[in-house]
């Protein structure tokens, strides 16, 4: 069956309309919040509710001035370094715990204990135990994200299909091959999720870590803004960090979409 010209054109218009509606529903909440803020800025002094135009100017200023942008990048680097450290240590611990019941029984309570320690306590411990800004921040980042990474990787390992694992084992793989053909592909979806979750946590912890001790980074800059009661600056620095988290999440989602193409998608969604 062929569509007549006007019919086809109408179909295309309809599709474009649907895309616009989707885009609109995404930005609507932001528009509402921004509008409320902007209205508030008309009635309150700038140190309480600065105009969003000023905030935008400050954001732009951060992006174009290298000495400021380098602060953002330093913070980003600290987040990624901390996460990478926590991930590798956590994954190693998880493998040990998955293989040995007694290791699991020994390590689980310790990690649970760590989870209950506030980020600020780690900051104090780091200052007392370590010299130098970067080792302190790295230590804080690792300690605060390690338990979550470990439990998430352990859960993924324990949740692996026994049927599939036994099938692979029936071919008698070497340990390295077992990891490559079975364990890594099987736990990869959970690892991606763990990174997404921990990225959010780490970006919140990193500014706390930087507040005490750092001489650069978003946390340090926030402290400066607080001392001069510069709300526009505080917002601008916060937004820079949020932007980064959004970009990193988008990169992870992009990777997921490529790597997990094999997944069956039901036409009945949840």
């Amino acid at each position: 069956m062929t569509m007549s010209e006007p019919q086809a054109a109408r179909g295309a218009t309809k599709a474009r309309g649907a895309i616009w509606r989707r885009a609109f529903s995404y930005i609507l909440p932001f528009v509402v919040v921004a509008s409320l803020w902007q209205i508030a800025s008309l009635f309150f002094p700038p140190f309480l509710f600065p105009s969003l135009i000023d905030v935008f100017k400050r954001c732009f200023g951060i992006l174009v001035h290298w000495d400021q942008l380098s602060d953002v990048l330093a913070t980003v680097g600290r987040i990624l370094a901390g996460l990478a450290g926590a991930f590798f240590i956590g994954a190693a611990l998880a493998v040990v715990m998955a293989r040995s019941q007694s290791a699991n029984r020994f390590l689980s309570p310790i990690l649970t204990l760590f989870q209950g320690i506030p980020a600020l306590s780690w900051v104090v411990f780091a200052i007392i135990w370590f010299h130098g800004i970067e080792p302190r921040i790295f230590f804080i980042m690792v300690m605060t994200t390690l338990p979550a990474f470990t439990f998430q990787v352990l859960g993924a390992l324990q949740g692996m299909s026994r049927d599939l694992t036994e099938m692979v084992m029936s071919f008698r793989p070497t340990r390295a091959k077992l990891f490559r053909v079975m364990i890594i592909p099987a736990i990869l979806p959970d690892i991606m999720t763990a990174w997404k979750v921990n990225l959010g946590n780490a970006s919140r912890v990193v500014v706390v870590a930087e507040l005490v001790g750092a001489t650069g980074g978003v946390g340090y800059e926030l402290l400066q803004q607080q001392q001069v009661f510069d709300m526009a600056g505080a917002l601008a620095w916060t937004l820079q960090l949020v932007f980064f988290v959004l970009i990193a999440q988008a990169v992870l989602t992009f990777i997921e979409n490529i790597v997990f193409r094999y997944r069956a998608v039901s036409e009945r969604t949840l």
Binding site: D163, L164, F171, R172, P185, Y262, A264
Partner: peptide, 22 residues
Amino acid sequence: FQNDRLLPWRTAVQNVELGLEM
């Protein structure tokens, strides 16, 4: 096996190659 136990992240031919890789 009684059930097929194919690795979902591998295509048909990659699944058949599994034992040969080992």
